[in-house]
Write a protein that binds this DNA or RNA. Sequence first.
DNA 1: CTCACCTTTCCTGTTT
DNA 2: AAAACAGGAAAGGTGA
Length: 257
Amino acid sequence: GTCLSPPALDHVSTVMPGYTSRMWSQDYKPQYWSKYLVWQWLKQMVDMYQIDAASIPFQNFDVDGRQLCSMTCQDFTRAAGTVGPILYHSLNELKWSGGNKHLSGNEKGGGVCLMINETWCDDNNIQELKSFCSPDIEFLTIKCRPRWFYCPPPMCFSSDTRGTHLWEFIRDILLNPERNSGLLKWEDRTDGVFRFLKSETVAQLWGKKKNNSSMTYEKLSRAMRYYYKREILEHVDGRRLVYKFGKNAQGWRESEK
DNA sequence: CTCACCTTTCCTGTTT
DNA sequence: AAAACAGGAAAGGTGA
């Protein structure tokens, strides 16, 4: 298959009736769900993704919204097996979107099509897709054949109005390891030292955010070097692709989260 | 429209 | 040899 064009936004509500219009869409944040609402949500997920209800031990979800939201992807896998990541990602969308829905994948005639990082993907460009998302995605597309599947974009692509600055973009990738596997990694978490693992991929993602398809690490790194003077970054010598947050960078420390 | 700010682009040269 | 690093110079984009 080929990469499909995204449908117009106003198709979403017709395509995903219950999901966007029911009670858990906007006014009810999952964090405040009762156990009953968690149960309702679970039933809807089963219906929406055509999950075999018998495969989910429902007693593992005898929790309220606050507890549910504190579960990691691994917790969901322990609780629900192979469909755990689907539930996890779907819940995350509700946690993060505040009613502003991202599009979900569109399937026509049997294949799986996903939307990742605002790009429509299918089996052909699944490799690129995997480099952007957590390893869960691969297993989802192989094991599951949902009619509708939502993959949350990494935090750095969320359309919130937060910082559009490069160092914030980098920081936000580092702060969301489960959503951004293998792009960047901390070398020294407490000192704020980090390293680019996939420098060109990060540059492309940065370009994507800035609507600039010709961004490269060469150019991104020039912008990074300007940060030394402003003490947003501190110089780390002798180590390629390694940078360190400086005193004018905020929000990266564990204690600040 | 102007200005400041933050890059982006391009470049030459150096280092690893 | 290829990829990173260093910065100067100048242009671009955006929001106030």
